[in-house]
């Protein structure tokens, strides 16, 4: 479901003398349906950069990124938007939401955008929030004031509310207690079982061992001149 071939990336800093910073070269990666691949490598190896390129936040300098058959390098914004809406889910480490919007709405929103009726979207959002032990009294409040762990669980609920065929998970268990970590690992297991292709960054080695079928070291993609 994810096919990456010969992918490279560099940043050009126009306001700092036009400095060119190569961060990735010759990256290859595939993730099949029903498989969870863990992206490993030291800090700065480019794990997050690769995830952002697959999500379409970062432009590729050269090479190919195909997600569910759609070529992302050179894709029109609306193709990427359509892919993100229905196919490509993303759990990032940061929660970016309109302030004031209640948690339940934040979690239900991806379903509403897909045209799922409001009642059904809210029911599904509520079920996930309950499963992730987000107290019911918080559901009507905006998550912007929540603790880090609560925000992360809201992010996870939002990322799992629709059965995306492809999922990117950036540190989904990072600031969670043992019980909630178990819930997240179970959610990942269920997503794999229904055939989702998952690429994740897990610093938590035990979690990685539990859900990942394979590991890929991003350090192999660091260009020589930057290594």
């Amino acid at each position: 479901m994810i096919h990456i071939e010969n992918l490279s990336k560099s940043f050009v800093l126009h306001n700092q003398g036009g400095a060119v910073i190569p961060v990735m070269a010759g990256a290859h990666l595939t993730v099949a349906a029903g498989e969870c691949v863990g992206l490993v490598g030291r800090s700065g190896a480019g794990k997050s950069t690769l995830m952002r390129m697959i999500h379409g936040n970062y432009l590729a300098a050269s090479g190919s990124i195909r997600v569910a058959g759609v070529e992302l390098a050179g894709a029109a914004p609306r193709e990427i938007l359509a892919l993100r809406r229905a196919t490509l889910g993303h759990v990032s480490q940061f929660l970016r939401v309109v302030p004031r919007v209640p948690t339940l709405e934040v979690v239900a929103e991806p379903l509403l955008r897909l045209g799922v009726p409001t009642d059904r979207a809210r029911d599904r959002a509520a079920a996930l929030l309950a499963r992730l032990n987000v107290p019911r009294r918080l559901w009507t409040l905006s998550p912007t004031t929540f603790s880090g762990g609560e925000q992360q669980r809201v992010n996870i609920a939002r990322g799992f509310v629709h059965d995306y065929p492809v999922m990117l998970l950036d540190e989904p268990t990072a600031s969670l207690d043992a019980a909630n970590r178990e819930v997240v690992l179970a959610l990942i297991g269920e997503a794999k079982a229904r055939g989702a292709a998952i690429l994740g960054i897990f610093h938590d080695e035990a979690a990685r061992a539990r859900v990942c079928d394979r590991l890929v070291d991003a350090a192999a993609f660091v260009p020589e001149q930057a290594a």
Binding site: F11, G56, P77
Partner: peptide, 10 residues
């Protein structure tokens, strides 16, 4: 021009 988060992030 581009996708909003792409233009802002990269």
């Amino acid at each position: 021009t581009g996708l909003t988060d792409q233009v802002l992030d990269d």
